[in-house]
Each structure stands twice: as C-alpha cells, then as structure tokens.
Design a binder for these strands. Sequence first.
DNA 1: CCCGTTAATGAATCGGCAG
DNA 2: ACTGCCGATTCATTAACGG
Lengths: 379, 379
Amino acid sequence: MLKTPETRTDSKTKSKVREAAPANRILVGDCVSLMRDLPAGSVDMVFADPPYNLQLSGDLMRPNHTRVDGVDEEWDRFADFATYDRFTRDWLGAARHALKDDGTLWVIGSYHNIFRVGAILQDLGYWILNDIIWRKTNPMPNFRGKRFTNAHETMIWAAKSQDAKYFFAYEAMKNLNEELQMRSDWLFPLCTGSERLRDADGNKAHPTQKPEALLYRVLSSSTRVGDTVLDPFFGTGTTGAVAKRLRRNWIGIEREKTYAEVALSRIGQVEPAAEAELLEPPTKRSQPRVPFGWLVERGLLQPGTTLYDTRRRHSARIKADGTLVGANHLGEHNGSIHKVGAAMQGLPACNGWTFWHYVEGGQLAPIDMLRQRVIAEMH
Amino acid sequence: MLKTPETRTDSKTKSKVREAAPANRILVGDCVSLMRDLPAGSVDMVFADPPYNLQLSGDLMRPNHTRVDGVDEEWDRFADFATYDRFTRDWLGAARHALKDDGTLWVIGSYHNIFRVGAILQDLGYWILNDIIWRKTNPMPNFRGKRFTNAHETMIWAAKSQDAKYFFAYEAMKNLNEELQMRSDWLFPLCTGSERLRDADGNKAHPTQKPEALLYRVLSSSTRVGDTVLDPFFGTGTTGAVAKRLRRNWIGIEREKTYAEVALSRIGQVEPAAEAELLEPPTKRSQPRVPFGWLVERGLLQPGTTLYDTRRRHSARIKADGTLVGANHLGEHNGSIHKVGAAMQGLPACNGWTFWHYVEGGQLAPIDMLRQRVIAEMH
DNA sequence: CCCGTTAATGAATCGGCAG
DNA sequence: ACTGCCGATTCATTAACGG
C-alpha cells in the first residue's frame, strides 16, 4: 500500500455507524479482490475508466494472432465478448459492494465497450441516471476517411438502485453553466500539453490519461466536500488529483506499480483549493425549513395583513395561526400559504413562498424575502 | 400492403443476381416475420428506431403544473429487460437476413435501451463503425432538477461483419461540414412546428417523430442514389419521406395501420430532389457560448482567486462552481460574473467578461482573454 | 400589418419528510 | 410500509393573442 504525505483516516461522521474505507491511498493489485476487501457500503462514489474491449487490443486474441474462418468465427467472437463481459460483471459487482446504498457510479468508455458495460450494470441492478457525452474539441481525425471522426466518449452515471437517494449538485452545475441547466453533452479538450504526464524520454506515462477538467465536473456534480471517491482503474491518478484539489477523499486501485508511483508523486504536488466554503454553495434544498407561521410569530407580518400575487389578481388575509383565508368565485379557502395559493388559482399545487407578496412602501415583495431574513438569523 | 402512387419495382442492376426487395411500399404487420420474408441480402441499409422501453411510471408535471405528454403507448411496454432483449435479438436477426453483406445498419436509442441494443448487435456479429450523438438544440429540460438535462440521443452505425466493404460518402460528409471531417456528434433541433405531423385535433400523430434533417444526414452518408433503405419501425415514415427526396428506394414496416396511413399520405406529397440539389449547402456555425465556470473547470482560474476591476476599486473571489462572491457597503453579493459586477457598482447590468480582471505577473488582464483561449480551442 | 406578450410543448426512467 | 403535506422545479422554439 502506497501512502500519501497527508495520509488521513478520518472516521467519517455519518448517521449510520459503518466502517470507514482507508482514504487517500493507492492500493496496488487486482481491483476486484481489493474492492471486495473494502468495508461494504464505504464509499460515496466510484469513478471507473476500465480497459476497452480486450478483443480489440489483441490481449484476448489467440497467441498467434490468427483470425478464425467460417463457423468457428462466431464461437471465437462470442468467447471474446464473454470474457470481457465476465470481467465487467466482476468489477461492477465488486464496486457495488464497496458503494454506499445512496452512492453513485460513473463509468467512461467508447463504442467498443460501453454498450456491454451499460447492459451489464443494468442487469446488476444499477439504475442509469444519465449518459453523458464527452465531446472532444480536438479529437484525432479519421486518417483513412472510412468513418466519421470519433469525436466523443460516453460516460454512464448510475445510482445503486431505482429508489436510491443519490446526490446531485443541481445548483452548482447550473452555476457552472451560467444559470442554465447543465446538459448531458460536455465539451472538453483532450489531456495534452503540460497537463499530460510524460516520462524522462518524453513518452506518455499512460496512454489514456483523462483531462482534469472532466473529473472536476464529475466530482463536483455528484459528491460533497469530505466524501470518498473510489477509482478502481486509477492509472496515473487523475481522479485522485482532482479529488484532493476539491477536498474529497480518494481511494485508488491500480494493478501496475509504475502507474501507481507516477500517480502518487503527482497527487503529492496538488494543493487543495481555498476554504471549504468556497466549494459548497448552499443549495435551496439544504436550507433549514422555516414555517410561514414563524414570520407571524416574529412580527415580520401581522395577522390581518393582506397578501397578493404579483399582478394583484388574487388576495388573501393572514390569520393569527399562520394560515391564510381568501375567496374567489369558487368560494372561501382556508389553509397553508401553499394550499390557498393553489385553490385561488385552481391549480393542484403552488409554492406559496414565491406566489404570495406583501406590500412594503407601495411595492410588492415576495414573502420568501422575509423567510430569507429568518434563515440568515438562524446562523 | 399499401402502395404509393409512383410504385416501382425496379429490378436492381447490381453485380450479384439477387431477388430484389419490393421497394417503395409499406408493409403492415410484425417486422420480424416480414423482414424474414424479404429476399435474403436484398436491402442496402436498415434504419431502425425501435421502442426505447422508457419504463415511465407516474405523471411528470412541469413547474407550472401542466402535465408532460410522455410516451405511454402499448408498443413501448415490456415486462422486463429479458423480454426487451428477446425482442431486440429477434428484429436485429431478421434485419441481418434482409441486409446485403456490404450493407449497414443504423439504430437510434436513448440510455434506456441503447446499451442493450449495442451489446446484442455485437453478439449477433455486426461490427460497430461509429456511435453517433444527436445533440438536441432544444431538449426538454429536467423539470425537477434531479439530473442533467437529457439533451441527446445515440445512434449506432454498424456493418454486417468486421470485414464487410461498406459504403461511406466521405467527401459528401466533409462538404456538409465546411471541408472538415464530419464528426460523431451532430447538432439538430427536435421535430416541431410545421414539420411535426398532427391529427385534426392538433395531437401528435406519433409521439416520437424524428426530424428529417437527421435522416437526411444518415441516408446521404451511407447510401447511394437508387439504393434501397429498410425501416422496420416506420411510424409516420420520416425515413421514407427523406429517402424519396434523396432518390433512394425505401421499404417501411409498421404494425399500426394508423401510422402507416399517415406515412403513405405524407410520402405521396414529397417531391424527389433534382440530381444537382442532392447536397445541401453548408450550414453556418454559430459562435459558441462559453460560460465562466468552464474556465474554472479547466484550471485557467482557481477557486479562491481574487478578481478586480481595472482600477482595483472592486474585488471578488471565485467559487468552485464558477460564481463570484464580493462585498461592498450594501452587503455581500453572490452570483454570476455579470450579476456580481453589476451589484458591486450599483448598476443594473454589467458585462463581467470585460469588467473583471485577474492578476498575471503583477499585471491585470481581463478574464475575456481566457475565454478567447477556450473559444480558440473550440475552433 | 407589425410588434410585444403569453401560451404551448418536446422519447422523461424527474421527492422528501413527518407522523 | 403507507399517507399526507410541504414546497421545489424549465429551455428553446413556435404559435397564438392582443393592441
């Protein structure tokens, strides 16, 4: 086991008492057995960049590299895919063991292997959340002019099961995209230039090093500060480097000791980003719940005050218990800000916080402004 | 069997003497048995848009409480993955029978089904040439904010075997793309507006009608004038309409008679293009949009870095999600580079790209310089 | 007829918590 | 496990409407 300088074994303080995974380490060896040795349900996310179909790289071809003719060919082909499928089932199963029930899995691949990976992970019970396209700004051209330029790779993002409560940093993703929802197609350049790790002779340290920007978006979309990320095909440690930068814990598994050594030295040079609060913008959903009645209790709104919608088409009065009463052609409506807002509009539901407004200096202001004031006082 | 006005049974003049498929017809019925009944090796290309097996459960409501009109047809319901896989193996096998040895297969799908389709077609001996991403300019948003906006669909383009001599219109594709090799990611809008077929009540004639532009590129990339294209899930006949326009022969198979009737009438109105017009003029590329967050992801700016205006009267710090945080006498401001720039100056609006500067070698440089660098990478 | 505003809609696997 | 309620959530485009 290789250790980083800043080795930590922070016992995570989550609700369930579980054994923590050994964080910020590289484990050298076979990822299937090493993942099975990790405590069950101990990591928040798995990012995997598995080898492509070995049939293509020749590893699964016959030793003499001959191709079989005729009837035998189909069997041979089946055998190759079957071997790759078995390998895929094994590591996806082991990852499932290490992954928390509410954790998520990312896998990246190309058309050579991604269809097999996707089908198998569905068979194992993973629930696909998105497939994400990494569009390359600078792909390798198709030199022979026989196909379209293969200008993308595919990632699958999946939860452990259909009803898992996975984490998605919706607001952070939206902020990264200038207030528009982040889409399933991402544009990044290949890993080249100074980011690309090379040995003393100038040769690539690893043939398929991924760009850090890609991992930056993956990790910030689906993990929180302090979470643990497991990468079973660690290579030269892009996942670990970005995890450290974003103040996530990481576990890398790598079979080749040479890669692991490069990765360890690389990660040692990474500086974690500025203060944690810069990394974790408060999401609306994680804010404390403030019932409307609290505003009345605190005197921010008086019983008897009239509330309006933005166009003053609807109005309702505040009762002392924090409910509203309003009337339209359908009759009188009593209840929560949400229920009355919905009833007045004839809709099945309504967010009363943004629908109802109070009058301040002749202007209408949403009652949500008052809630924000209360939330600010709670810190 | 439904017949078009211009019914033809041109005996194809290819090298091998083979029975020709009955072209420019819609066959109503089960595609598996009908494809098996076609002469073996009689079609040049298969384009298939099979059911996606969406597995939708309850209703999805938009934020304004209207209901999303999703796919709820009987033909998209399968008991489980095994049933869907059996169905997929059956139709892919039958298509293989009808397809010429040097013909190619196209299948379109989403993450719900495309991994299973891809794995099965590999198992059957098809050889994947490309996976093609249809990027949608106007996808439906993710209304609940729980995932990335699903903004693309995937097509697989495959030859019948590894050593097949398939056809690829390399030059035509390059011409369509301003003299650059055509890439594997294609950008098209959804089929809406006047192109979308509707019944007398204004309802969609088919829930999943594909845009003609998509088929235009598919057909011109991998068929020649006079070739025969088979679509086993014909629906309302987009494949037939574009094939006729491009002077290709077509065979449609459709189970629902209603769809077939709509398709036949639609195709009857199509005028074949003049020989000279068979290639569309290059489409103009629009200037790419680069959100500020991309600079942070790509490491051009670090979280925690301070930005200034030209005179250093204002400053703000970068957060990991690409927003800024700054403070003045009015309080703290959070948000996009534009929003915070405006708030710091007390102005209604501000172009953050030119307002904010970063420090490089003691000098201030506008962040727009970094954006230009990213745009340059995108061509 | 033009312009500004409002409404409609697209292959969608789209809660969470208290009680 | 089930029920009920709180309350969070949308982009690009076209068509319809209103003045």
